[in-house]
Structure formats: structure tokens, C-alpha cells
Design a protein around this nucleic acid. Structure first.
Lengths: 226, 226
DNA sequence: GTACATCCTGACCACATGGTCAACCTCATG
DNA sequence: CATGAGGTTGACCATGTGGTCAGGATGTAC
């Protein structure tokens, strides 16, 4: 119904130039604003009105593009999950534990750093009992964790690291890295700064890498080149 | 001593027996219910109606006891801060770092364990930018952290542990322990369990203690029994 | 110009929101 | 019994909620 394709006319370009461009620009604006509002107030606490104001658009326009509050929220979650899934996608038993763990910590830290609102959105969803993400958690993400946990275990068997519980190790890395996005307000309040700089992130990453690798009996990367 | 016979006139004192008891019972019921609802949906997302239903009381009754939604929320935050302040209250440079750090991890873990809703309430407040807690964070809590950080530094100077940044170490312990309350839904989904048992908590505590102490170059308590 | 799809939005709807209030109930004491 | 303070709550209010819709604006293709 939205589009009526002509059977024979060579309409290579149905949509006008402004069409796609306008849509893309507005959707991006709305998604950015919505991520911020949902992150700050959770699903119920966020109002379409507030999102619209943050995006500089009338409420009706937001609903025109996104259909519904729920649809918008789900779309944001899916975008965040996609970013997440790209993390540490290909590791094998033959990789160097130190390198992989450092890459894990670093990339997770970068993810929280680059998408703090998305990170908080995710956190708020989990805090509320993950009503929209239960299937993802006990499906895709669980598999993701189990696969990596198996590799950690094999490393332990080969004596490349201590035989720590791999799942709790993953949780430890998650929580430690996520903290700087989710609890940013706390970190800033306590340290007395007004922002977390790139240099801070670099230092925190180094700190976490050092403590966690040493804590698991993994030697730092420099010690294990071939 | 439920009632004190007034020496002169029974004018000033009028509280009946049922008065205090009823009030106490209802307030406790409301606070428990409210903590759960605020934790799940944040300040804006929680409705007085939902809290009332969770407490098994009419909405009017909740407002009769608590005055306003905001007052109820602030009261819950203060209760949680009081629990928090009792943590690791007296440590000195002369204590054993291993014992103190383990006690810190353990008591923080127990706090999250005993008050998961309060923990999530706090988390939701910080996630939303800590609109009600900014002063507390940059005041009391900041002092709390600085005092303990100073002690960690002195331990490092004495060679009792690695010279890691003490503030980030505190954040690391906070995030790792808080994770099991705040992200409970994630932990359960991924591990496939339906609850986190006392035995799990014990094992997680041991894991965190081992990794963090070793990671900071602290030796475990020499006199550890078994 | 006409045609047509997309874009835009104020007005509107049914319902939920936090909060108020007056009327009621309960019950120990005088 | 009557008093009176605490406890209880349905009805009510102004405002906010997510969502709909009709009608107009805009721009490109013919």
C-alpha cells in the first residue's frame, strides 16, 4: 500500500533524494535523543514527549517515524545488542590468554566509552528484570559466554592461567568496565572531576588489565610472544 | 513500658498502643514494596498506585503515611545510605591489607545480598545522573573513599601491596560486588539458574577475593583457617 | 500545470498520574 | 456512654500519558 510499483515503467528511483535523507536524519536524531532519555529514566519513566523535546521535534513526528514507544525502545536495545555482539567475536584456544583478555577488557571499555547512553539503557533494562531481553540473555548471550568460558577453561588446563571460574571472570570484567559508564555520576562525584577523559580511560584500562591478568595468574602479553 | 503515666496531666501524651504498632507495620510494608517498585522502574517509572498494590493497601493510605512520592523515595535512599555507611567503618594503616580487603569484599557482597532491591534502587538513582544523591556523592561518600584510599596508598608505600590506584581499586570492588545484585537478571539468564544461592555467593566472594588480592600483590591472610 | 508519495503536526481521545479531602472507622481512655 | 486521636479510603482534580487521525505542507516526476 505505501508504494505502488509500476509494472513496466523503468522507475529505477522511486524515492526522492530528500526522502531517504530526511528519514535517515530524523531517525538518527530521534534514536540519539531516545537513548538518552530511556537511559536516564528507564522504559516506563521515559515519556515520548520528553524524547520529542530532546530531539527537537513534535511528539507526533516521533511516533510517525517510530510507530510506538515500545517499538522505539526495542529498536534501541537491538542496536545495542548488535554493538555488543561484535565484541571478541573470534578467539580460539591457541590464542594467547594475555592478549585476548587485554583485548576483551579494552574493547569492552571502549564500547562503554563510545556508547555510554546505550550502556546505561542496557543497564536499566537489566535492573528492571530484563523484561524485553530475557530471551536474548538466556539464548544468544548465554551461548556467547559458554563458548568463551570453555576456552578459558582449556587455557587453565594447559597451565596458561589459574583455574578460576571462567563465567565469574567474564562477569568481573563486564562489571568493572561497565561501571565507568553506568555509574559515571558516582565516579565523577567522588573523584571531583567534571568528566572522564580519554587519558583516564587509558589508565583505568591499564589498571584493570594489570590487576585482572595478574589476579588470574596470566602473564602480560610481552612475556608470551612466539 | 507501653504507656507512661503522666505525672501531671495526660494531655501531652496520647499515643495509643495500636498507634505505634499499626504505623510501624504499615510503614515497613510500604517501604519494602516501594523499594522493589522504585528499583525496577526508577523514580519516574514507579507509580504510587503500583507501590500501593505491591503493599496491599489503597493508594490514599500510602500517601497518608509517606506524604508524597518524593518523600518516600528520599526516605528509601537515606535508609540505603545508612546501611552503606556502616561498611568498613574502622580500618587503620596498621591492619593487615589482606584481611581488610577481604572483609571489604565480603561485607559489600553481603550488603548487596541482603538488600538487593536497595542496591538496585541506588543503582537506578546513579544511572539517572544521581539527581537526589549528588551532594552525598561529592560530600560524605567522597570523604569515605579518600580516607580509605590514603590507607591503601600507605600500604603500598610499605610494600604490603602493589602501588595500584586506590580509588580505582575501590571502584573495582564496588562494581564487581554490586553486579550480582544489580544485574541479577543477567546472571540468572546466562547461568541458567533460577536463583543465586548462598553457596554461590560464598564461591563468588572467594573468587573475587582471590583474584583481586592476588592482582594487587596482596598475600591472602596467613592465618586463614582452611 | 497534475499526480502522488512522503513528511509534518495540532487537535483529540481514553486512561493514568500524584495529590487532596471529607467522611468514615477503630478503640483506648475519661 | 462520649471524646478524640489515629487510621482508612473512595471520590475527585488538574495534568500527563501513549497513541490516532485528518488535513495540510513539501518536493519530485510527469
Amino acid at each position: 500500500m505505501p508504494q505502488t510499483p509500476s509494472p513496466e515503467k523503468p522507475r529505477t528511483r522511486i524515492a526522492s533524494v530528500s526522502n531517504g535523507a530526511t528519514r535517515e536524519r530524523n531517525e538518527r536524531e530521534i534514536l540519539t535523543a531516545a537513548e538518552r532519555v530511556f537511559a536516564a529514566h528507564g522504559y516506563r519513566g521515559a515519556s515520548v514527549q520528553a524524547i520529542a523535546e530532546a530531539a527537537g521535534l513534535p511528539k507526533s513526528n516521533v511516533l510517525y517515524y517510530m510507530g510506538s514507544k515500545r517499538g522505539l525502545y526495542v529498536r534501541l536495545l537491538e542496536r545495542m545488542m548488535a554493538r555488543w555482539n561484535a565484541l571478541l567475536d573470534d578467539i580460539s584456544v591457541d590464542d594467547d590468554p594475555a592478549e585476548v583478555l587485554e583485548a576483551f577488557i579494552r574493547s569492552k571499555m571502549e564500547l562503554s566509552r563510545r556508547h555510554p547512553e546505550g550502556s546505561r539503557l542496557f543497564a536499566a533494562e537489566i535492573l528492571g528484570g530484563a523484561p524485553f531481553l530475557q530471551d536474548y540473555l538466556s539464548g544468544e548471550l548465554r551461548t556467547w559466554v559458554e563458548e568463551r568460558a570453555r576456552i578459558f577453561e582449556q587455557w587453565a588446563e594447559r597451565g596458561l592461567m589459574d583455574p578460576v571460574d571462567p563465567v565469574w571472570l567474564i562477569f568481573l570484567i563486564w562489571s568493572a568496565t561497565q561501571h565507568y559508564a553506568d555509574f559515571e555520576a558516582q565516579v565523577l562525584g567522588i573523584t571531583g572531576r567534571d568528566e572522564i577523559t580519554d587519558a583516564d580511560v587509558e589508565r583505568i584500562t591499564a589498571f584493570l588489565t594489570q590487576v585482572i591478568l595478574k589476579g588470574c595468574g596470566v602473564r602480560p602479553p610481552a612475556a608470551a610472544p612466539d
